[in-house]
Simulated scan of single mutants.
Amino acid sequence: MENKNKSHTVEEALQKLMHFCAYRDRSQKEVEDKLDNLRMIPEAKEKIIITLMQENFLNEERFARSFVRGKFRIKKWGRIKITQELKKREISSPIIKLGLTEIKESDYRKTLYELAEKKEKKIIEPNPFKKKKKLADHLLRKGYESQLVFDCINDIID
C-alpha cells in the first residue's frame, strides 16, 4: 500500500504514469485522477501530462478506439452505451466519433441479432407483446439504438 503522505518527484511520478499508461490505454481523466492520488501540484501534473502526450503514452484517440473495440467485442455494448461511458471519462465528441468508426456496421447488426436471438430463447413469456418488451428492454440497456432494436425484434419474433 502506498504511503498517502509520501511526496513524489516529477521524475518518479512520470515513471509511475508511464507504466500506468503502458499497461493499457488510459484517458486523460484517468491520468489526472492518478496524479491527484500521488498528490502532485498542478504545475507538475501539467508537465507530466504534456510529457506523456509527447512520448505517446497518452493519446485520447487511441484510448477511445481501443475502448470502443473492447466494449463492443467483449461486452457487446451498443453505440449509445459506449458513447455515454466515453463521455463519463471526459472524452470529447469528435474523438468519440472517431472511436466509434472502429465498429463496422455489418458487425454491429450481426452482434445485435446474435444478442437478440440468444436472449429471446431465454425469455419464458407466452404473451408475444410482453416477450417483445422484455427483449427490447434488454437490448436497449445494452446501448443499442431503439429503431435498430425494434426492427431486429420484429424480424425475430413474428
Rank of each mutant, 00 (worst) to 15 (best):
R69A: 02
Y144Q: 01
S66H: 08
F72V: 02
E11Q: 08
L14P: 12
K87I: 10
Q147M: 12
F63Y: 13
F150I: 08
D137W: 04
R141D: 11
K6L: 10
Y108Q: 02
L112T: 03
R141Q: 07
D158V: 10
C152R: 00
V10C: 10
E30A: 08
I153D: 05
S93G: 11
F57K: 02
L100S: 06
N5C: 13
E105M: 06
E55C: 06
L58F: 06
L139C: 02
V10P: 03
N56D: 13
S106W: 00
N154R: 14
K29L: 15
D137S: 04
S146T: 11
H138D: 07
N37T: 13
E102F: 05
F72H: 05
K34W: 05
Q28H: 15
I82S: 02
S106A: 09
Y23D: 15
F57S: 06
K121E: 05
R69P: 05
P42M: 01
L58K: 11
I156V: 12
K47N: 08
E117R: 13
I123T: 05
L115H: 03
C21G: 08
K142V: 01
I49D: 11
E85V: 06
E2A: 09
I96A: 02
D107R: 07
I48D: 04
Q15C: 09
E55G: 03
K47Q: 15
S93A: 09
I123G: 08
Y144M: 02
I48M: 07
E85C: 00
R26V: 11
L52Q: 04
R39P: 06
L52W: 07
F63A: 05
P42E: 15
K132A: 14
I156P: 04
I95D: 05
N37Y: 10
E105L: 09
D33A: 09
K133F: 12
R26W: 03
L115W: 03
R141W: 04
V149Y: 00
K133A: 14
I74P: 05
I124Y: 11
Q54L: 15
H19Y: 08
A136Q: 12
Q54F: 07
T83Q: 00
D25A: 14
I96C: 02
I156K: 01
L35K: 10
R73T: 11
L35R: 01
I82D: 00
E85Y: 09
A22L: 13
K104T: 04
L98E: 14
E12W: 12
R39G: 02
K131R: 15
T9K: 12
S93E: 14
K118L: 03
K142M: 01
E114F: 04
N37F: 14
G78Y: 00
